[in-house]
Design a protein around this nucleic acid. Sequence first.
DNA 1: TGTACATCAGTGAACGCGCGTTCACTGATGTAC
DNA 2: TGTACATCAGTGAACGCGCGTTCACTGATGTAC
Lengths: 215, 215
Amino acid sequence: MNDVQEFATEGLMTGKRADKREDLKARLVAAACSRIENSGLAGLRARDVTADAGCALGALYTVFEDLDALILEVGSVTLQDLERSLHERMTTVSDSGDRMQMLGAAYLAFARARPKLWRALFEHQWPEGKPLPDWYMERQIGLLRLIAQPLTDLQPDLSQPELMVRARTLFAAVHGIVSISLENRFVGIPVETLDHELERFIGLLLTGLNGNFKG
Amino acid sequence: MNDVQEFATEGLMTGKRADKREDLKARLVAAACSRIENSGLAGLRARDVTADAGCALGALYTVFEDLDALILEVGSVTLQDLERSLHERMTTVSDSGDRMQMLGAAYLAFARARPKLWRALFEHQWPEGKPLPDWYMERQIGLLRLIAQPLTDLQPDLSQPELMVRARTLFAAVHGIVSISLENRFVGIPVETLDHELERFIGLLLTGLNGNFKG
DNA sequence: TGTACATCAGTGAACGCGCGTTCACTGATGTAC
DNA sequence: TGTACATCAGTGAACGCGCGTTCACTGATGTAC
């Protein structure tokens, strides 16, 4: 089953044309991903991406409104990969505290494995004013739901919205630690120390969560 | 007393000339600060800065090696301001736990008061390879020492290097929470909620630190 | 103190390049009969 | 199935602009006597 209709945004596009369009889009996203992973977001050029994708420069603008739209698509893919990684690792254990630890470790591992794609997620400045599209926000929220899951056990008295806010706070804290370390800001610390430090930090949070972190 | 000699990096610069050079430098830094605070780091142009500072475009390059060097100077000023703010607020209370809370609140307040200068601190990409100059690193470390101060009481068994690493971790966590909120990533939360959330979060850390966070 | 010469901070027009986006064109795909 | 025409995805040269950095020049400051 193909979902061509979803993408045929304007007019009716029949079989072959829609397929080619999909193929082109996929090639562009793939090319952009690998460009970003190799050269970072700042090293992304429309010319390079289209050359890698095997199409003309202008073709990009028949599929995406502009470069930003393409970058957002890459972000969406990265978020999906990240969510899959986290989910996989989290479900290897059943205790909620352990799951939190796994989430932290998996996040760090992901950031190390694809540092530039990961950075791009936060570096990219969406033009002010324009709100991020819903499908992108959903991807972000999916990530938070993953964290909220073990958190529900640890904080059973929280409402759903409170839970999401709490999940965001915890994510943000871990993200801060990982990103400041990987970007080598402030004092540098040995590589292995970071793993221990993060584990200890989450342990600290868990200690607090066991009854001392009432909403 | 003037400290002209410090800045006369090459050759011997006498009185009037050195003074003018200092004055020019100060005007450039001030102009860059206000440009960044108004338009963000990405909106900084050599032409605008020099126009604001009342000198020719080329003058910038007689005082700084390039734009990056000027931006770094702005960063240094921002770090100084930040450190001053934090110190002031922290010393209004004496209990170490309260001091931690004050540091967090003051950090959030600073980020809100000068959002774009604050962002620039982390946004700015120093060319890879080139290490950040020592005097800049010192400014960063000064900030950590401020955090390490109350932390010493809470974790008396830590060595000095461990203390600095721990301080960095705590700073990074708080920074993550503040920045993800102010940049409006993921689910949005009401403005006042952020203050409570941060306070609660630090409270949680403090709970853990009271005996459960052994190095 | 005054004069002649030397230095060099500061000038700003011009260079040079990068790069996102457009648009007149063309050839592959689709439709009508 | 085949032919004639219509559409439109895809092309890539050209546009347009922004902007960091340079460099030949000049006038203010400093030095020598």
